[in-house]
Write a protein that binds this DNA or RNA. Structure first.
Lengths: 227, 227
DNA sequence: CGCCACAGTGGAACGCCGTTCCAGTCAAGC
DNA sequence: GCTTGACTGGAACGGCGTTCCACTGTGGCG
């Protein structure tokens, strides 16, 4: 390793490893989405050939799973924080929401059953602690999981669209959507068109939390929302 | 067209048309999912070449959008039926749920903003009719949309997994999941493991409707659920 | 100390994909 | 009957995931 006998491609400084591959894959995914992750692009960025990557990773699917894992596992550490069950559920939800906003490519991956199960477990535990009656626990937990994953995915899609067009700042996020809505035909879209003017002050993170609260209210863990 | 001068590839009986292309695309998608839709497979099934398809359809993306359209537009006809707003919302939700169960490839497509807007409009109108106070309408409508799309997508993923393994019947659906859950480590997954035994009689369609009702309760359109 | 075995590498090659290109075909209009 | 132009279908292109394999460098063994 000290001196290179042949002057061909510069030899990598650090050895190839599964961790380095996954980390680089995340960089590519964050930069250009799922289509940005290519074994050739990965190999170029790691100064190696595509074949070498296959020594550490079985295929692209495993690579995507590992990358999602790296983003998602920290979320499970919500267990550490100390708060009431409803507050913990909100925190779990927000963590997923923020992770998917920052890494929109996670969306399709997180729907995989294994992660669904992890979230169901995490939220179900909180519902038990909160004293939700046993027969209602499963419905409540799986509804929360579905909403959290659904709302986060859809926000991520919108975030990608936002990034593709010019709009930048977080505060403009719903504003841009509102603009599009305001231009819709009022006869065909009376509700959306009317509401477009009223959501200027909204933030989609708050919007998401309001949805969680709506569910917690229905479950009986909260009083009536904003009466 | 009456007689074929050359005996090469059998000439198509019906002329190529955008509708025929889209209909065949749906067949392929239903049979093998998104990866089953290929311009080559499509051309073979239509007894033509790949190039001819591009005369009627700009690219694969437009084809997928058109196919989704064909599946989704009938859902919007819920406007016709006559029922109370909560019942109509349940019907809309179930239509989406069933459509995605039958055609799991729709999932990623339905998250596109245009479909989100259509559903928001449909459900927002019902909330207005039901007398939900104006400031709460947007949150309520978008939460319902997120849940309906999220829960339907996740069910579709599970349905695909189910189809990939051996399990067939609808009634076995949650049963198979319960089996997998029952085998999980009770120390790591206390909630999921415990609940696995209790959901034998559940049906995921009913489960979905229970989630909708939970939300309607939180919105204030329903009494307390099963007190 | 020399050799060997083998984990690890990287580039060439394969078969598929979406898409483009273009030489043909054929019915309708002059 | 000729011309035109909408329409066809097969060849070809670049890029993808994946496989294959000749090669390298190093640690352990004789």
């Amino acid at each position: 390793m000290p001196d290179r006998p042949n002057p061909r491609a510069e030899r990598r400084q650090e050895a190839l490893s599964r961790d380095r591959i996954v980390a680089t894959a995340v960089e590519l995914l964050d930069a250009d989405g799922e289509q940005g992750l290519t074994f050739r692009a990965l190999a170029t960025r790691l100064s190696t050939g595509a074949g070498a990557i296959y020594w550490h990773v079985a295929n692209k699917d495993e690579l995507l799973t590992a990358a999602t894992d790296a983003m998602f596992v920290p979320i499970l550490d919500v267990r550490r924080i100390n708060a009431s069950p409803p507050a913990k559920i909100r925190t779990i939800g927000l963590s997923v929401f923020d992770a998917m906003d920052a890494h929109p490519w996670i969306g399709p991956q997180l729907s995989r059953t294994s992660w669904q199960t992890s979230m169901l477990e995490l939220i179900g535990q909180q519902l038990q602690l909160a004293g939700v009656p046993a027969p209602a626990q499963f419905t409540a937990a799986s509804t929360l999981v579905s909403f959290i994953l659904g709302a986060s995915s859809q926000n991520a899609v919108n975030a990608s669209v936002r990034a593709a067009s010019g709009t930048r700042s977080r505060s403009d996020s719903l504003g841009a959507v509102a603009d599009r809505w305001a231009r819709l035909d009022p006869d065909e879209y009376p509700f959306v068109h009317q509401i477009a003017g009223a959501i200027g002050e909204h933030d989609d993170r708050e919007q998401f939390l309001a949805g969680v609260d709506l569910l917690l209210t229905g479950i009986g863990l909260l009083g009536q929302p904003t009466p």
